[in-house]
Amino acid sequence: MDIIWYLVPSALLIGAGFVAIFIWAVRNGQFEDLETPAVRILFEEKLNNEKEKQK
């Protein structure tokens, strides 16, 4: 059961890692506009198809 002495801190470390990623994402503005990218991705797909057709 001594493994818990290592498991608990490492679990907290992994958690802290995800918190760090979250902080980066917020600072980077990933949560600023939640609607437009969802719409935009549909157009890009259509454009790629057009380009492939042109090839």
Binding site: G15, V19, F22, V26, F31
Partner: peptide, 25 residues
């Protein structure tokens, strides 16, 4: 407003992560 929103989101994210981990503990 923008920087306020970011701060709030950061606080919320941190509080959520902590609440989840304390539940586990």
């Amino acid at each position: 407003i923008e920087s306020e929103n970011r701060k709030r989101l950061l606080d919320l994210g941190l509080a959520g992560a902590i609440a989840g981990n304390v539940m586990l503990m």
